[in-house]
Design a protein around this nucleic acid. Sequence first.
DNA 1: TATGAATGAGTATTCATTCAT
DNA 2: CATGAATGAATACTCATTCAT
Lengths: 215, 215, 215, 215
Amino acid sequence: VHSEIKPSNQPKPSFIETARRAQIIECAIDAIAELGFAQASLAQIAKRAGVSTGVILYYFAGKDELIREVIAHVYATGRALIEPRVNDEATARAALRCFIEASVGFVASRPNYTGAVMNIIRAGRTDAGAPRVDPVVDQPRHVGFRSILEWGQGGGEFRPFAVGVMVETIVEALDAIPPQLAADPGLDLDAYARELVELFDRATRADTPAQGSIR
Amino acid sequence: VHSEIKPSNQPKPSFIETARRAQIIECAIDAIAELGFAQASLAQIAKRAGVSTGVILYYFAGKDELIREVIAHVYATGRALIEPRVNDEATARAALRCFIEASVGFVASRPNYTGAVMNIIRAGRTDAGAPRVDPVVDQPRHVGFRSILEWGQGGGEFRPFAVGVMVETIVEALDAIPPQLAADPGLDLDAYARELVELFDRATRADTPAQGSIR
Amino acid sequence: VHSEIKPSNQPKPSFIETARRAQIIECAIDAIAELGFAQASLAQIAKRAGVSTGVILYYFAGKDELIREVIAHVYATGRALIEPRVNDEATARAALRCFIEASVGFVASRPNYTGAVMNIIRAGRTDAGAPRVDPVVDQPRHVGFRSILEWGQGGGEFRPFAVGVMVETIVEALDAIPPQLAADPGLDLDAYARELVELFDRATRADTPAQGSIR
Amino acid sequence: VHSEIKPSNQPKPSFIETARRAQIIECAIDAIAELGFAQASLAQIAKRAGVSTGVILYYFAGKDELIREVIAHVYATGRALIEPRVNDEATARAALRCFIEASVGFVASRPNYTGAVMNIIRAGRTDAGAPRVDPVVDQPRHVGFRSILEWGQGGGEFRPFAVGVMVETIVEALDAIPPQLAADPGLDLDAYARELVELFDRATRADTPAQGSIR
DNA sequence: TATGAATGAGTATTCATTCAT
DNA sequence: CATGAATGAATACTCATTCAT
């Protein structure tokens, strides 16, 4: 399907192929979230999927491709959950609040998804020295936050600040949650989200004579 | 020198021993910062030091000890740089600002130091499933920020917020810098520090009728 | 096939798996018997089997498991050869004679088998300080001789003596044969067996007014 | 003294050299007896001697030579203890009894000595495939027992039997004691000796109309 | 499609030995 | 004499990947 031996014009991924790929990705996510990226060997992933390691390499050109697809799948799932909620917002301030809440909600609803991706991203670099995660695929959240922040700055809702720094800080604050949740599964994520919303609302909003509370 | 075979009361580390240990730690830091923790094998570290891998195991009981000493060395270096500056501050607000500036300054002066420790901490779990970095040794910055925040809340300088969330967010914001710096060595860290200071000053300060600018 | 990664209920060992495991065990026995336990590395064993060392670790969880299976296989082979012959005997004295003869016969028919196990057992202790061979698996011959000796003492065939010392002496006398055979392949084992039978018959039998020769 | 760099005509081993060699041999014996041959590295031996490993290789051409000297020293010590007692005996039967008792007494008085040598001998062969223990140096006890047995057979005290088998059986019975003593330090060696004496007295003595008890 | 067999490069670690000082 | 430094070969073991079936 993707290796050069197969016909390059992938005609129609068969049902079984789609199912297998999805199953393997799911098992990879679980393995990485539970064992950590370094310990998540193909053998471990295959074991969870109840197949041989050969199957994984039949459907994915190599471990790197599997990992890339894991990331892509997690991002797509997150985007599907988050984007519609954010798009309904009328103000940048509300959109920011909503984006943060939805992001934390994604962590809460799919802790393994976010946990796996964090493990991958933070595990560092691959042999070639290139970052294991393409900036391209890593960007969606950055892009989303950046556009909200620029929207708010343009409209005067937000004070002037370096958008890049703010984006990075917000994203990292969210990325810090999965490991904390793994360490303490009882963590109150609703409260965590409220704190982050308040934090970044204060950090971003413009100084106005009459600025009401966010809620 | 330190392995269980030698007498436990190591009398006086020779000059060459001190030098070699320092050199190996330095090379380990570089290797980890540049290759990532997973790719930084003893062989890689030894190659950078221009010695055989046996030398590393002659001076360190094993890879784990080397890694522990890398972390300890980086934290000690950072603490020596940061602590004296922070202790002079009269208000929690100034201390927070100073701590952030000093932390970024540490990253700027020793990018590989912070980069290596980030790589280690984020590489996840060891075989035993326990985090590779003891909370104890990982805490110094957390402890420092926490005490400043509690100081400020107690004195009314800071608004009420969940200290744990704020600490985590600040530390993560700082930890996000080394990889950005690696990707873009031209990054203006002074500006980055100013942005973070302003960001967290707004995020933490109490609502007062007359709140002046931080500078 | 057996490592923790595979499902625990190994369904049916394939033909090739059975054959490979048997082949590797056989090569391990030869290597240990000829080189000694300490020199019988996985690489040596693999070389004799004409495979890479990875193959051994594919079929056995580790060197320890391989060694355990070597011992188990040798003991099972020996037991199958010895037990049926001993069980037919009517008197303890005849049973003792028969057990000794059968034991020497086992050495004669499979010198490497007994030689390998001797090498393993006598190689001493593993890292944990525990004997490399469980007393449990090491006992079969001890148990066998002990029960015969107690049977004979109970029935008055044998004189009173410390059973433990006698068992140890008999077993050691048998264990001494493989190295002698290795040093001198022309050794007459039938004669050796006759000598041991006579020796231990005299050492064990009760003092009776009319005690005929054993044959 | 022994390496080719030193003057080949070893003139007079200095006092310090003699002392060092003795000390190292003693520490090697302890290390081997306590850790097992495989775990008794030069580093371990040096640690016990309170010197660096280089010292060992200064006084001994290599580990093999050290081990050979350990064996030689243990045999010499044993011979000095045993021989005079055996030479006083008037009959072969008494000499055999005395030799066994003295041998067990040697084990009792110097458990590490005999334990170390057993560990070495049983650890198997060296790289060259040659037995680690020269038959020459391994023989003294064999020679001693053999001469007693032949003496007894010649004089009619002992029945006809294959001397070689009997020697081997006696020696192995004695060699079996150190590991048992290591496993159970409370072992009653006097009783053990009495059992062996009785055992081999019965195994060797000629059939006479009036054979009294050995004592 | 899927498996199981096999490989080869890479991992940390041990240890006898050499050598400059 | 003695040390401590350094090496290099050997150890068991892991794992992504290939391939015949």
